[in-house]
Design a protein around this nucleic acid. Structure first.
Length: 310
DNA sequence: TGCAGTGTTGCTTC
DNA sequence: CGAAGCAACACTGC
């Protein structure tokens, strides 16, 4: 489930592998982009849209790659940007891919020259052929991923990007700004507000659980009832947790892989997420991690050291 | 065996 | 306006 650290890890990988190359060809099985509504009809399930997409990308050079919230932005020389949202189970990989009908993935090697092969690598729905002969592929078991193309200058106001809140890891995103963003939903539960992309961009279920554990806040706490010094702790934990996620190469609890097909390792560093029943790792705490539902999603927390403010 | 759980987003409903 | 619920899809685990 790609959140900010997973998307950042992917973008960092794209910068090392595909930036500077040109796109020779693009293939799709017309199966990805499930949740596309009349308002957002640019789905790669639509043959006509794919024809337009193909016309724009083939022959273009990849000049840069960026992340905005959980979106991957691939900027092209023709002043258009490919926008990819991996949703639940999508991931981009770079390597040698052959034969779209037989779906064979020739895995990349890691630094020890070990082949990186796993069963998810076969769920390929989009394949870009690049000027060095390698491929940039989108793998997505559940087919929710969004792939579209937007004139680069229209991106900031587009329906994909326009509503998003500030980037939490920007140096300009200071504590007063963080507090001001949270105050927009002061009557709501903190876990829901952290995951609201229009308040702060890029935080999802895993990292919200982890930063609340770190800052000793119960997920059901009401924003305006949390003392200011505790909000400050959350601000610090937000930055450090997201940075830690990036340092660990993302979280592969589910399907996430980096562009080399390799798993991240943040799942081995969890303190709360999916640790129901386990003993709390906070020194001298001895609580047992509990699972509840908040805003329709699972929340994991320690009922002993995470304080409820209501 | 069958069905709840998984988590992102955006539409629908109240 | 806000929230709650659900659908898009496929696989896992109990």
């Amino acid at each position: 489930m790609p959140e900010l650290p997973e998307v950042q890890t992917t973008v960092d990988g794209l910068r090392k592998t595909v930036v500077g190359l040109s796109i020779r060809d693009v293939w799709t099985d017309l199966a990805v982009g499930a949740h596309m509504t009349p308002h957002l009809r640019e789905s790669l399930k639509d043959k006509k849209f794919f024809a337009r997409f193909k016309k724009l990308v083939v022959g273009a050079k990849i000049i840069s790659a960026e992340r905005r919230a959980k979106n991957i932005l691939i900027n092209l020389s023709n002043k258009h940007t490919i926008l990819i949202h991996m949703k639940m189970t999508g991931h981009l990989m770079v390597g040698k891919y052959e034969n779209t009908s037989k779906v064979i993935w020739e895995p990349s090697k890691n630094e020890n020259n070990e082949a990186l092969r796993d069963p998810y690598n076969k769920f390929l729905h989009v394949v870009f052929t690049l000027s060095d002969g390698k491929h940039l592929v989108l793998s997505d078991v559940r087919k929710f991923a969004k792939v579209t193309i937007v004139p680069t200058k229209d991106l900031p106001t587009s329906i994909h990007i326009g509503h998003l809140g500030p980037e939490p890891l920007e140096k300009t995103f200071t504590f007063p700004l963080f507090k001001a963003r949270l105050d927009k939903r002061s009557g709501s539960k903190i876990k829901e507000v952290l995951m609201d992309q229009s308040i702060i961009a890029g935080i999802g279920n895993i990292y919200s659980d982890e930063m609340l554990w770190e800052s000793c806040i119960h997920p059901l706490s009401i924003v305006k009832k949390i003392p200011s010094d505790t909000v400050k702790k959350l601000f610090t934990a937000m930055k450090s947790t997201l940075k830690k996620g990036i340092d660990f190469g993302g979280d592969s609890t589910s399907d996430y892989r980096d562009v080399y097909g390799k798993k991240g390792t943040f799942q081995g560093a969890h303190n709360a997420y999916r640790l129901t029943g386990k003993s709390c790792k906070k020194p001298r705490c001895h609580g047992a991690i509990k699972r509840i539902v908040v805003g329709g999603r699972s929340a994991h927390f320690c009922p002993v050291h995470q304080k409820l403010f209501t």
